[in-house]
Amino acid sequence: MPSEPAITLVRAEQLTANAPYAYAAVTAPGRLVFTAGACPLDADGATVAVGDVAGQAQQVMANLVVALQAAGAQLTDVVKTTVYVASSQQADLGAAWDVVRAAFGEHDAPSTLLGVTVLGYDDQLVEVEAIAIRREADAT
Results as ranks from 00 to 15, higher is better:
M1K: 07
P2V: 13
P2I: 11
E4T: 08
P5L: 07
P5T: 04
I7P: 03
I7N: 05
V10N: 09
R11E: 10
A12N: 02
A17G: 13
A17D: 15
N18V: 14
Y21S: 06
A22T: 00
A22N: 05
A22M: 12
A24S: 01
V26I: 07
T27D: 08
T27S: 07
P29A: 07
G30S: 03
R31K: 08
L32R: 05
F34C: 02
G37I: 07
A38G: 08
A38V: 04
C39N: 13
C39V: 11
L41N: 15
D42F: 05
D42I: 07
A43D: 11
D44Y: 03
G45V: 02
A46N: 12
V48T: 09
A49Q: 01
V50E: 05
D52R: 00
A54Q: 12
A54H: 13
A54W: 12
Q56N: 03
Q56Y: 02
Q56A: 00
L64M: 11
A67R: 02
Q69C: 07
A70C: 06
A71Q: 06
A71P: 13
A73E: 01
T76G: 02
T76P: 02
V79Q: 12
V79M: 02
Y84P: 11
V85Y: 14
A86C: 13
S88I: 05
S88F: 07
A91F: 15
L93D: 00
L93M: 09
G94F: 09
D98S: 12
D98W: 10
V99M: 08
V100C: 14
A103R: 00
A103C: 01
H107D: 03
D108Q: 06
A109Y: 01
A109V: 08
P110S: 07
P110V: 15
L114E: 05
G115E: 05
G120Q: 10
G120S: 03
L125V: 00
E129M: 11
E129P: 00
A130T: 00
I133A: 15
R135P: 10
R135F: 14
E136R: 01
D138G: 06
A139R: 02
T140P: 14
